[in-house]
Design a protein around this nucleic acid. Structure first.
Lengths: 226, 226
DNA sequence: AAGGAAGCTGAAAATTAGCTGAAAGAGGCC
DNA sequence: GGCCTCTTTCAGCTAATTTTCAGCTTCCTT
C-alpha cells in the first residue's frame, strides 16, 4: 500500500464533519477531525496532517486564526478553506493569511476532492505518482487503471474496488473487509454486492477463468498477478 | 508460530471475554484480559500489548476514553474496537480518537482474526512472515499451505485442520480437542467427522501409510515431520 | 479365536457459498 | 419529464463443502 495521506477536518457542524470524513476515509485518506479551532491546533500537532480543511465560520477562533497559528507552529500542511458564498471578499483576506486554496459552499464532494488532489500534487509531489504493479498501472492523478497497456473503463466503484484489490495483491481479502474498505463502514447492504462487482471486474479484465481474481471459498478474494 | 504477539482484551461481559481469549490463545497469541477501562489502562502499561481489543460499551470509562488514554500513555498498540450494529456512527467517532479498526457485533471469530492480522501486518510487519515447518509452509496472508513446494488445494475446514495439526506437530491431539479447536465449542456433531477430514487430508498429502499424520489409537492424531 | 471398541472408508444427503442475469432504484443530465 | 449510467437487490442456479451413515477393517483384550 502507498503511504497514507493524512487530512485534518475542522468544522463545527457535526453533519458536515461526518459527511466529509466518511467520504475521505472512503477515498483512502487517513482522517482526523476537530470541532473547533482550539482542538484543531492540538490535534494537528500530534497528527501532523498533509492537508487541513478549515471552515472559516466557527465559534471561538475562526478559520483564519487557526490557519495563522498552524503556520506559526511550523506545520507543513496545505490549508484549504471552506467559505460561504457571501463571504467572497474573505478570499483575499484568506490567501494573505496563508490558506492555499478555497472551496465555496455549497460545494460538491468531488470538487473538494479535486482541490485536495491538486494541492497534494503541488505540495507533496513525492507522495504521488502512478504505481505499476504487474500488468497494472494505477494512475491516481488521472483516476485511471491501465491493464496490459489499455485503459480500463470502470465505474467509480469498480475503480475503487480494483484499486484496493490490486494494491493488496497476494493477500486474501474477505468480503466483509472489502465492504468496509471500499463501501465504507456504514454500508448497510448485503455482501452479495461484492460478488456482483467482482464479476463485473472479471468481465472487464477478461478473467474468465478467475485466475487473476481468485475466489477462496469461505475466505474471500485474492488477486494473483500472473 | 508467532509466539510473542500480545493482545489485550477489554470487555465487561465475561462470556465474550472468555470466548475470545480461548480463541486467540488457540491461535498462538499471548492474551491478557481486563473487565473494565481502568483495569485495562493499568494492565496495558505492564503488558505492553501489540493489539488492544476494546468493547465500546462498558460501565465506567468507555472504549473511546480508554483508547485516548492509551495513546496518551504512549502505547504503541493498535486498537480494534468492538461496536454494536446500531452504534455505527460511533465508527466515525472512534477513528478520530485513535482506534485503528472496527468490528461490528455480532462478528465471527474469523473476522476478528482477519482484522487482527491485517493490523499486525500494517503496524508490526517485522513480526510477520509465513511460517516454515518441515516440508510445510503456512502462508496466512495468502491462506495457502505449501507442501513439498506445491500449493495444496484445501477446503476451508481442511485448511484450518491441517494448519492446526502442523503448528502442533509432534503433539498428540485428541479428536475431542481437535473438534473444539477447529469446529468450535458449540459443534453438536459426531467425532467421526474428524476421521473423515483426516482421511481427506491424508489423501491430499499422499500420506497413504499414515506416517505423516499418525493415528494413536484411543489417544488421537499426531503429525510427524519426516 | 471371538468379541468389542476404535478407526477407516465410500457414498449419499444436507447445507451453504458464490455466481449469474435480470430488474428495481437512485442520481445526474439534456 | 425522459434518458442515461451506475448502484443495489433479488432469486434461481450450480457446485463445493460439510455432515451423516452404514458397513468394513484393524487392533486389543480375554
Amino acid at each position: 500500500m502507498e503511504k497514507e495521506i493524512k487530512i485534518l477536518l475542522v468544522d463545527d457542524e457535526p453533519h458536515i464533519l461526518q459527511f466529509l470524513e466518511m467520504g475521505l476515509v472512503n477515498e483512502g485518506y487517513e482522517v482526523a477531525t476537530a470541532p473547533d479551532g482550539i482542538t484543531a491546533i492540538g490535534v494537528a500537532e500530534q497528527f501532523s496532517p498533509h492537508i487541513v480543511i478549515l471552515d472559516v465560520m466557527m465559534p471561538g477562533i475562526d478559520g483564519f486564526e487557526v490557519c495563522r497559528m498552524l503556520k506559526k507552529n511550523g506545520s507543513q500542511a496545505a490549508v484549504i478553506m471552506l467559505t460561504a458564498k457571501d463571504e467572497v471578499e474573505d478570499k483575499v483576506k484568506g490567501l494573505t493569511l496563508g490558506a492555499d486554496d478555497y472551496v465555496v459552499k455549497p460545494f460538491s464532494f468531488e470538487e473538494l476532492l479535486a482541490r485536495i488532489q491538486a494541492r497534494l500534487r503541488n505540495q507533496f509531489p513525492s507522495l504521488f505518482g502512478e504505481v505499476s504493479i504487474g500488468p497494472f498501472r494505477i494512475d491516481d492523478r488521472r483516476k485511471e487503471i491501465i491493464y496490459q497497456g489499455k485503459v480500463l473503463e470502470l465505474s467509480p466503484t469498480e475503480h475503487q474496488l480494483l484499486r484496493y484489490l490490486v494494491l493488496n495483491h497476494g493477500i486474501v481479502l474477505s468480503k466483509t473487509l472489502i465492504l468496509d474498505k471500499v463501501w465504507g463502514y456504514d454500508f448497510g447492504g448485503e455482501e452479495n454486492i461484492v460478488e456482483v462487482y467482482i464479476r463485473s471486474l472479471r468481465d472487464k479484465l477478461g478473467d474468465k477463468e478467475h485466475r487473476l481474481i481468485r475466489t477462496l471459498r469461505g475466505a474471500g478474494y485474492r488477486v494473483d498477478l500472473l
